[in-house]
Computed example of a mutant assay.
Amino acid sequence: MSDGKPDVLLTAGEVAHSRAGDVFAEDLDAADRLRLAFGLLDLLDEYWVTCEIRFANEDAEGPLPADVLWGGYRERLEADRDAEAVTYSLWVDWFEDHATSATAFAEVLGDDIDRVVAEPSEALLRRARRVLECSGPVRWTVKEPTYRTAVRLPALRPALFRALRASFHDVYGDLEPAAALALLDRLQLPADTRHLAELRHVLAAGHRNHHRSPGAWDDAVRSCS
């Protein structure tokens, strides 16, 4: 309910925008404030809560405890429930910012990829797929070792294909065409996989990003049709 109008129900988004920041003013230590914020995220399922978490991480009293911060992200990426707010947060906030992308990617997947491949539980696979699919903006030099390890596990190959495609199409996507093409060929996807031929075409032509070569994808579509 609204403070000014107690009979008016607020939406989850309105609660997130009006109350999420207050969590970090509670008389608790930083770790417990962060846990409370993650609890609010679970309750509201609103991206804005993740924004308040990042604001708190960057303010004068930050950074937030890294083990609680990234443990909270990993837990929600592994959960068998919708994780759109969390993956969107990774994509547009943590991964697009080169000051944070390497650490964020390492924490949510890069440091664990060997374990994921060796012990592929459903929870770990769920996290890996979700991170791969939003990892387009992460610098190629940061994510390539993880991609090369992930390709060894057939269960991750469709997500890795989407990661390569996003690395080409995202506004801030990053890849090295020759290395990405070599990875693409290792995926062993069915030949009729949607957009596979087009992606192979643009990578073979040496294109790094859709927005740097705006006509390349259309040319690939015509050539592959």
Rank of each mutant, 00 (worst) to 15 (best):
R33F: 05
N209F: 01
R200T: 10
E26T: 13
Y73Q: 07
A123Q: 12
L125S: 02
S223M: 07
D3W: 05
A12I: 08
V49K: 05
S223Q: 14
A123R: 06
D67Y: 09
E26K: 09
L41M: 08
Y147N: 05
A31K: 13
A85H: 10
N57C: 00
D114W: 07
A179T: 00
L125I: 05
A118P: 00
G71H: 07
C224Q: 15
R127W: 07
L69N: 01
A166E: 09
L40V: 07
L36K: 15
A180L: 03
E198I: 09
Q188L: 10
G215L: 09
A99V: 08
G4E: 13
R76K: 11
G136I: 09
A104F: 05
E26G: 09
D112K: 02
A37T: 04
H207V: 06
P63D: 10
A216N: 06
E26Q: 14
A83Y: 03
N209C: 02
G173P: 01
D42R: 06
G62L: 07
G72F: 06
Y172P: 00
D80Q: 09
S213I: 02
E26H: 10
A205N: 05
G173V: 09
A123K: 03
R19F: 01
H201W: 15
G21L: 01
A159Y: 04
L183T: 02
P154F: 12
T103L: 10
L160G: 02
Y172N: 14
V116L: 08
E122H: 11
